[in-house]
Simulated assay, not measured.
Amino acid sequence: MDITLLASLAVIHIVALMSPGPDFAIVVKMATQQTRLTAVYCALGIAAAILVHTLLSLLGISVMIQQSPLAYMAVQLIGSGYLAWMGLGALTSALKALKLKRQPATLVTASIDNVANISSFKGFKTGLYTNLLNPKALIFFITLFTVLITPQVSSATKIAAAILLFSLSFIWFGLLALVLSKPRIQQKLLAANTIIDLLVGVIFITVAITIAANIISDWLT
């Protein structure tokens, strides 16, 4: 087993995990606005999606998708569409909250009711789809494994790499979910829920627009 290779993968992946993006944004949203269990399941969903990306890359399926213009465009369109839909949902939620700000009691009640509306399973699916349908994640893992995982790498190292990336992802997002879902922190961030929704909406829509722009640029060239 190549320990040096696994250490390199770990460092690169940890840096990527800590970078602001759709995964980070959705965990913050879930942890500050939903129950702790839902937030943790969201983190688990992201980690599961990362495991899928890892396995697809190790098996060469991701490269095959990228090399097929039609398949790759379909993945990008589906991914950008999902991210845009999620972004619009967050912005809509923020706009509704802004309208309710004139009625503080109603806003608080609505926020509390909203916590019970999302099940842990839906939290898992949200985390799973957010990462799995993000074309940028697909590109990241293709690049990472093309450079570091050569044909000479042993099966044991590949299996260890898959377990390592899954574990690091769940540990990071799981800890983030646990910390931000503490009742005291949730209460302090209650007034910032609108801002969080706005930021989440902007992040998701920006990524979706970037992907769409790349698709148009590739199509024109």
Rank of each mutant, 00 (worst) to 15 (best):
D2M: 08
L5D: 11
L6I: 04
L9S: 04
A10D: 10
V11G: 13
H13I: 00
I14Q: 03
V15D: 08
A16R: 01
L17S: 02
M18V: 09
M18P: 01
P20F: 07
P22L: 12
V28W: 07
K29W: 03
K29D: 07
M30P: 06
Q34V: 00
C42H: 03
C42L: 00
I46R: 07
I46H: 08
I46A: 06
A48I: 11
A49K: 05
V52F: 02
T54L: 10
T54M: 15
T54H: 01
S62G: 06
M64A: 13
M64Y: 00
Q66P: 06
Q67S: 01
L70S: 11
L70T: 11
A71D: 05
V75R: 10
I78M: 11
I78T: 03
G87T: 10
L91G: 09
T92E: 15
K96N: 10
K96L: 11
K101D: 08
A110F: 07
A110L: 02
I112T: 04
D113W: 00
N114K: 09
A116W: 00
K136C: 05
K136A: 14
A137P: 01
F140W: 14
F141C: 01
F141Y: 04
T146D: 15
T150S: 03
I159T: 14
A162Q: 13
Q186P: 02
Q187H: 01
K188N: 05
K188D: 07
L190Y: 01
A192R: 04
N193S: 05
T194E: 02
D197F: 00
L199V: 04
V202C: 10
I205D: 09
T206E: 12
T206P: 01
V207D: 06
A208F: 00
I211K: 11
A213C: 04
I215A: 04
S217H: 00
D218M: 07
D218R: 01
W219H: 14
T221E: 15
